[in-house]
């Protein structure tokens, strides 16, 4: 009763383990969409639109180089968002998996933390695979302008994990507030898609007049894109601000869905 509930690491790990076990069975069959989607953007916009902005590129990068790392960040966002919305909703309300788990020593708050970690893990797994593909494509097709050129890119997997956790916190917050699964249409069209389009993946938002850059600063994906882009090509000290933004935002929001989900599972 009362007070803020803090998850236990052990309980969260048990939930993570359950998801990982199921993922190991099905990963091959669900892997493809996670690749095809960013590759479509890369092909359509990177090659298609990129053909028109070949001269000078953006900030000294070719258009392909510019958008590829941003797609890594958005890929993590999409993966974590699906995990924390539809998948979590099914476990919460349809299959009632959480009802079963919370009659064991694993508490509702542990379930939520475990789901955060799992969404982050899934983002990192897919992201790393996509990163490998990008690196290879770059070296094979545009060796003079590689898509991933900095050794700092080795930091991308853990960074993608944190980005995944951030979007899992947001998705779980929405999940904890809704009763019907069709309401996710609002979340994706009014939150996730705008974040995706105005995050600086496809064009730099800094050059626009106020308040566009200020609004972009409030977009979690904007910071994730900056971070990934700089790690792929060699970071400037400015990325520390993006990293700090992500950490502070994630940490300060993370306990709210925990309390709200607990209320839904324990009356």
């Amino acid at each position: 009763m009362g007070g803020v509930r803090i998850p236990s690491a052990r309980g969260a790990f048990r939930v993570w383990q359950r998801n990982a076990m199921i993922f190991r069975k099905y990963w091959k069959s669900i892997l493809a969409p996670n690749f095809i989607d960013p590759l479509l953007y890369l092909g359509a916009l990177g090659l298609g639109l990129g053909a028109f902005i070949r001269e000078g590129g953006i900030n000294g990068q070719t258009y392909l180089q510019y958008i590829a790392p941003g797609l890594l960040a958005s890929n993590a966002m999409w993966a974590a968002s699906f995990e924390s919305t539809f998948n979590t909703f099914v476990k919460l309300k349809i299959d009632r998996i959480y009802d079963a788990i919370t009659t064991t020593p694993v508490n509702a708050e542990d379930v939520v933390a475990g789901e955060y970690l799992w969404a982050g893990t899934r983002s990192a797994l897919y992201g790393t695979a996509f990163l490998a593909v990008l690196t290879m494509l770059g070296f094979v097709f545009t060796p003079e302008n590689p898509l991933v050129s900095s050794p700092w890119a080795l930091l991308l997997p853990p960074v993608l994990l944190i980005i995944g956790v951030m979007f899992s916190v947001m998705g779980t917050l929405f999940t904890s507030l809704i009763q019907r699964i069709d309401l996710y249409a609002y979340y994706f069209t009014l939150v996730i898609t705008p974040l995706f389009l105005f995050s600086g993946i496809f064009f730099p938002v800094e050059g626009f007049p106020a308040p566009v850059p200020q609004i972009a600063w409030l977009n979690p994906l904007y910071h994730a894109v900056n971070l990934c882009r700089e790690l792929a090509s060699g970071p400037s000290p400015g990325v520390l601000a993006d990293a700090a933004w992500i950490l502070v935002f994630t940490a300060s929001l993370s306990l709210l869905p925990v309390q709200l989900m607990r209320k839904r599972l324990v009356s």
């Binding site: 309980g11 048990r14 299959d95 079963a100 009659t103 020593p105 694993v106």
Partner: peptide, 28 residues
Amino acid sequence: IGVVPQENNLDEDLKVRENLLVYGRYFD
């Protein structure tokens, strides 16, 4: 305690034996 709920909430993504193994893990 052990709980048999009113509505079935078995883990449909897991096989029969796995349901028991995963559930046992929640108890460490």
